[in-house]
C-alpha cells in the first residue's frame, strides 16, 4: 500500500511541478502566441496526469480537446485580435492576497478529506461498485465509462450534448456562421465596381 502510494506520488509530483512551471510562465509572458502554446503544453501535461489517475477516457479527451481544438481556437482568436498583452498597470498585491486566502481556506478544508487512493473512501462505496458489477451482466461491454455515459446516465449525456449544440449556436450568432454568403456578396460588389 505505502510503496504503491510513494510510486504514484513521485510521478504525480513531477508532473505537477511541470504544470505549475507552465502556469507561472503563462502568468509572466506577455506574448500571447507563447501563452497559447504553453496552454497547449499545460493540457498535454494534465492529460498525462489523468493517465496516472487511471482515467484513460478523460486523458484521451483532454489531449484531443485541450491540446488540439482549444489551441486552434485560441490562435484563431489571436489572428482576429492582438498578439501582445499590454503591461499590467495596477499592483499584483490584492489579487495575490485574495488567491492566498482562498487557497489557504481550501487547503484547510482538505484536512478533513478521506485519504487519497484508499479503497474504502465514501466515494468508492456508494454507486461505483454497483456500476462495475452490473455492467458486464446488464450491458455486456467492457468499458464501464461508456456504459455509464450512454446508458446509466444517458440523461446527463443528452444534456451535455445539448449544451455543446447551444454553445455552437451562440458562437455562430456572434461571429456570423461562416459568413459564406456575405463574402460572396463582397466579391460580386467588387466586380461591380470594376
Amino acid at each position: 500500500m505505502s510503496n504503491g502510494l510513494i510510486g504514484v506520488a513521485v510521478i504525480d509530483i513531477l508532473l505537477f511541478l511541470f504544470l505549475v512551471l507552465t502556469a507561472i510562465a503563462i502568468t509572466r509572458l506577455r506574448n500571447l502566441f507563447a501563452v497559447v502554446m504553453l496552454a497547449g503544453v499545460f493540457s498535454l501535461l494534465s492529460a498525462a496526469l489523468f493517465v496516472t489517475l487511471d482515467a484513460m477516457d478523460v486523458a484521451f479527451t483532454e489531449a484531443a480537446v485541450g491540446a488540439g481544438i482549444s489551441t486552434v481556437l485560441l490562435l484563431g482568436t489571436l489572428a482576429l485580435t492582438v498578439r501582445d498583452e499590454k503591461p499590467v498597470t495596477h499592483s499584483a498585491f490584492l489579487p495575490l492576497l485574495i488567491c492566498t486566502i482562498a487557497g489557504a481556506t481550501l487547503i484547510y478544508g482538505t484536512l478533513d478529506m478521506p485519504p487519497f487512493g484508499a479503497a474504502d473512501n465514501p466515494v468508492q462505496t456508494h454507486v461505483a461498485p454497483d456500476y462495475l458489477e452490473r455492467t458486464p451482466v446488464e450491458i455486456g461491454i467492457p468499458n464501464t465509462v461508456a456504459a455509464v455515459l450512454a446508458s446509466y446516465r444517458g440523461f446527463d449525456t443528452l444534456g451535455e450534448v445539448v449544451v455543446v449544440f447551444t454553445a455552437a449556436i451562440a458562437v455562430l450568432l456572434l461571429l456570423g456562421g461562416g459568413g459564406r454568403s456575405r463574402r460572396h456578396d463582397d466579391v460580386s460588389d467588387e466586380r461591380k465596381k470594376d
Partner: peptide, 13 residues
Amino acid sequence: AVMMAIFVAFASH
C-alpha cells in the same frame, strides 16, 4: 459538426 462549425466561424470571420 460543432467543432468544425466553430472553427469555420472563427477562420472565415
